[in-house]
């Protein structure tokens, strides 16, 4: 441990305390407070440029982004555009998976007015609450986050009042005091599910990061800004019972030469006691005569980041 004042930003290679030559270094003119001011200025600039949840953009905006880039990516975007019409970007602040899920889910409910789905997810949210209690979390640590999510959920369906407008949903998703609380709600749900089924998740977590389930939840799930991996997605999808499709846009290409875009469907276990089928989600295409329904939440994954995709 060490404070980093006046130390160059490059990480040390050894765990010695500090670099003896630093005082002669130009970096010594940079105080922590200056660096942090600069960091927060960059953050604010980012915030202005990219809100938590952006506007819907045609898929061609994605193409424009790679205009002079990899031909494989451009080919893949062309393939994507056969099925998908638009993208909605989210801020790359480490919460993009949860934020994308939040917006995508609430937008779906707002548009479909699927009351049965709302009732179904509320039952699951209740179960998640019991899970956390069973794991020893004090109610006061999570109840405000749960309440805020339920409030958002109820605001998008017709109840005693008319649902909020689509514009209002966007405003709320960009309002830190709502958006971050909902993200944190999902982090609680995800952590609870992983801990509850720690035996199931253990090998996946061990493969990702040499950590115990407990350590993983404490360091990589519960703090804000920690990025999500397939472990988080599987756990959230299972806990809430919401299928999620992730479409992968990367440079990988098939041996056959044909360009295709991979996707993976995270399909929650249909029954609480049956955790085996949820393993890594169902894979597509599914030759089963009773194929899983196509998830209404579709996220575009580019290494390190998730955005929302819209079907044609």
């Amino acid at each position: 441990m060490e404070n980093q004042d006046e130390i160059p930003v490059e990480p040390e290679t050894e765990s010695s305390t500090f670099i003896s030559a630093y005082e002669a270094d130009d970096w010594s003119n940079y105080k922590d407070s200056d660096v942090m001011l600069q960091q927060s200025a960059i953050f604010e600039e980012d915030a202005a440029k990219s809100p938590f949840v952006g506007d819907k953009e045609p898929l061609s905006s994605l193409e424009a982004e790679y205009k002079s880039g990899s031909p494989i990516l451009l080919e893949k975007i062309k393939v994507l555009s056969e099925q998908y019409a638009a993208i909605r970007r989210t801020r790359g602040d480490g919460n993009c998976f949860f934020r994308s899920f939040m917006f995508s889910y609430l937008e779906h409910i707002l548009e479909s007015q699927d009351i049965a789905e709302v009732e179904r997810i509320k039952t699951n949210v209740e179960k998640c609450k019991k899970t956390l209690q069973g794991l020893g979390y004090a109610d006061f640590t999570f109840e405000d986050f749960f309440a805020l999510f339920i409030e958002q959920l109820e605001s998008v369906v017709t109840g005693n009042e008319a649902p909020i407008s689509h514009d209002e949903l966007i405003v709320r998703s960009r309002d830190q005091s709502v958006s971050d609380y909902v993200v944190m709600f999902f982090r609680f749900v995800t952590s609870g599910e992983i801990r509850k089924r720690s035996e199931f998740f253990e090998p996946f977590i061990f493969g990702l990061a040499n950590l115990t389930v407990e350590q993983f939840c404490k360091t990589s799930v519960e703090p804000m800004g920690e990025e999500s991996d397939h472990v988080h997605i599987t756990a959230l999808s299972d806990a809430l019972g919401v299928p999620i499709r992730v479409v992968y846009l990367d440079r990988s290409s098939c041996d056959t030469g044909g360009i295709s875009v991979n996707h993976h469907d995270f399909v929650p276990a249909s029954d609480d006691n049956d955790t085996s089928s949820s393993a890594a989600g169902g894979s597509d295409p599914n030759p089963n005569p009773n194929p899983n329904p196509i998830p209404f939440i579709v996220l575009l994954y580019r290494p390190g980041h998730y955005d929302i995709l819209y079907r044609k």
Binding site: N3, Q4, D5, T17, F18
Partner: peptide
């Protein structure tokens, strides 16, 4: 800590530890 004197000197203006970029190595 090894850098106690230097760190504490830097905090004379009463800054908060939350304004420090910490290393946890």
């Amino acid at each position: 800590p090894n850098d106690d004197e230097r760190y504490v000197k830097n905090c004379r203006n009463g800054r908060s530890p939350k304004e420090t970029r910490w290393w946890f190595h």
